[in-house]
Design a protein around this nucleic acid. Sequence first.
DNA 1: TATACTGTCTATACGCAATATATACAGTTG
DNA 2: CAACTGTATATATTGCGTATAGACAGTATA
Lengths: 148, 148
Amino acid sequence: MRIDSINNEFKSLISDPEKYNTMILNLSDISDESLQSQIIRQIRAKILAGELASHSSLPSIRQLAKEQRISVITVQRAYENLMQQNLIHSRRGKGFFVSDLQRNKKKDMAFEHLKENLQKPLESALAEGLDAEDIMQTFLKVLEEIKK
Amino acid sequence: MRIDSINNEFKSLISDPEKYNTMILNLSDISDESLQSQIIRQIRAKILAGELASHSSLPSIRQLAKEQRISVITVQRAYENLMQQNLIHSRRGKGFFVSDLQRNKKKDMAFEHLKENLQKPLESALAEGLDAEDIMQTFLKVLEEIKK
DNA sequence: TATACTGTCTATACGCAATATATACAGTTG
DNA sequence: CAACTGTATATATTGCGTATAGACAGTATA
């Protein structure tokens, strides 16, 4: 990369902060969760929590792959999944962008996601002999621990 | 199988009900959950809920594989997992048996399992912008739906 | 004691998902 | 035109779940 190219990057950073698009992700190789899944989950959370605004741009698949030192395909698959969830969309030659979702819609999606995620754990707990009160007690305990 | 062999099977069924050891499992080929995992989860639940008493025998790996029309290896892997969880143990030449666990211990294991299963869903929900009240509301809704 | 069960161990193989590498094509922007 | 973008295709590796097969070892019983 040449000097003037770097200068241009700094200029655009000053004039257009959105362009210096370093996605902050915590990816772990040793997790039991796949890289794709970690990317999907973390970007999804940022969008639903309003941390990534509608219409803002995401890093290009090549850039994100480089940053995170993972394969382009892995990022592409993750972005494809987020597109299927209608959370982001692509424009050929331009990049990927956060879709325009109303705040209510985002909250609904988070609710729906949680419902799905709770289904199996609660079914299992009942099948293993716990009752509603047991479950509630555990639920509150876990919630407290996380919030600390 | 010859006639007297069948007769013997009926005799032993009458004299020793535990010997007619048909494990009732609901296995689905089209589930997103692997066969191994389904076996582990269902037997685990039966043990923790007290439905399978301590010291009672489990079907042999070959018998269960035959019944469910799946591979012996699949059943063996599932049993190995249950042994690692100290829920069952094996006796060479005799079979697999439910381990002796106190009722309190079983409940503790169910609690621990639920805690682990709730960890990620609750973390996700908070990351996606839901608060404790939102989560509690969803939690109660799912619990009600399951209990119906 | 023979046989028919048990669990255990080993080897080999197949399909699939996640991941990776590489190349080519097509649209956008400066 | 150059340097970015997304898209598409082909090929390869790795690990998991699953499968088939055989051999070995302990137990129960007719």
